[in-house]
């Protein structure tokens, strides 16, 4: 892929926090790229560093206390080096973000319409005269039924699904080039989740923006993304296009994740289980961070950190045993 396509490149990102005597290493050398128009799924359990990574892309991690090393190159500029003023022009305008719980991200004492207009005016996306027309257009774009009257509603008068649509409308106000969606459907019912995913897919296709969906649910990303990066303990343990990731996962963690989710097809009487818990980020194991939970761990895994290798074309995996484990019968 040519460099002209590249929109975002994260190079060896490391983020740590000092907590008392300890150093909590939340992100430990993450490298990834996002192309124009790409939909990337970022999957991992709570505490794996996925949200911290993308908060730093948005410049939302105050440093200090966070210690950020590495580069985050957006459109040719390293955003970690930008001043607060410069960052404000990127944040929300070029890179927008939506969060898990829309009620916590909307102002409860401000009407929906005013909140959208505020976003539009802040980024100078349209003139004052046009702003209400544009707000209405945005609501229609995100398929809010009965849009004109919704402009006068307060957030608490809307359902969870509608609130998330409003959040998406606000994020789209400045026509961002990247939309970061952090667990956008986790707080929603399955039927509403399906609607929101369908909406994100359609909006992405129509606007050609890039989208990053951060989630713990592999089911969510299977449908709408192109590529998937699996995070564990602050590193990417596997990254591939979704077809090759789901068909031939290589990392034992990915294999475990795929097998432990009950699906409608699950027939087994017991679920496959990844034993144990994620490691304490202040006390990471010396070798592979997954080794204490890995059924296949060898002597080498306990002492030596695995490098990320390209195990198949476009399929990256950080495991000493990549390719040696049967994904169907772990």
């Amino acid at each position: 892929m040519s460099d002209g396509q590249r929109l975002l490149e994260i190079k060896d990102l490391r983020i740590s926090f000092s907590v008392g005597e300890d150093t909590v290493r939340a992100v430990n050398g993450v490298s990834l790229t996002l192309d124009r128009g790409e939909a990337l799924g970022v999957v991992g359990e709570s505490g794996c560093g996925k949200s911290v990574t993308f908060s730093s892309v948005m410049g939302l991690l105050p440093s200090p206390p966070a210690v950020i090393e590495g580069e985050i190159v957006f459109d040719g500029r390293d955003v970690t080096k930008l001043s607060d003023r410069q960052m404000r022009r990127v944040r929300g305008k070029d890179i927008a973000m939506i969060f898990q719980e829309p009620m916590r991200s909307l102002n409860p004492v401000m009407r929906i319409g005013n909140q959208i207009v505020e976003a539009l005016l802040l980024h100078g996306a349209v003139s004052r005269g046009q702003v209400w027309t544009r707000a209405l257009e945005l609501l229609k774009l995100v398929e809010v039924p009965d849009a004109p009257s919704r402009l006068h509603c307060y957030p608490h008068q809307l359902s969870g699904g509608l609130r998330q649509r409003i959040m998406i409308a606000m994020a789209l106000a400045s026509q961002p080039r990247i939309l970061l969606a952090d667990e956008p459907t986790t707080a929603l019912d399955v039927t509403i989740q399906a609607q929101i995913l369908e909406l994100l897919k359609r909006v992405q296709r129509e606007t050609g923006m890039s989208i990053v969906i951060i989630t713990h649910d592999l089911g969510v990303v299977a449908d709408i993304v192109d590529n998937v990066a699996v995070f564990y303990a602050g590193v990417i343990v596997e990254k591939a296009d979704k077809y090759s990731l789901f068909r031939s996962p290589m990392h034992p963690y990915t294999i475990g994740l795929l097998n432990c989710i009950p699906t409608l097809q699950t027939k087994r009487k017991r679920l496959y289980v990844i034993e144990g818990n994620i490691p304490d980020p202040a006390r990471l194991p010396i070798g592979c961070a997954f080794s204490p939970r890995c059924a296949y761990a060898t002597e080498r895994c306990l002492t030596e950190k695995p490098e990320t290798r390209e195990c198949a074309p476009g399929h990256f995996c950080a495991c000493h045993l990549a390719g040696q484990i049967d994904p169907l019968n772990p």
């Binding site: 399906a194 649910d217 089911g219 299977a222 789901f246 795929l258 699906t263 409608l264």
Partner: peptide, 11 residues
């Protein structure tokens, strides 16, 4: 409800 359940299978 059934059809809304996300399926972890891109195929």
């Amino acid at each position: 409800l059934l059809s809304a359940v996300p399926d972890p299978d891109p195929f």
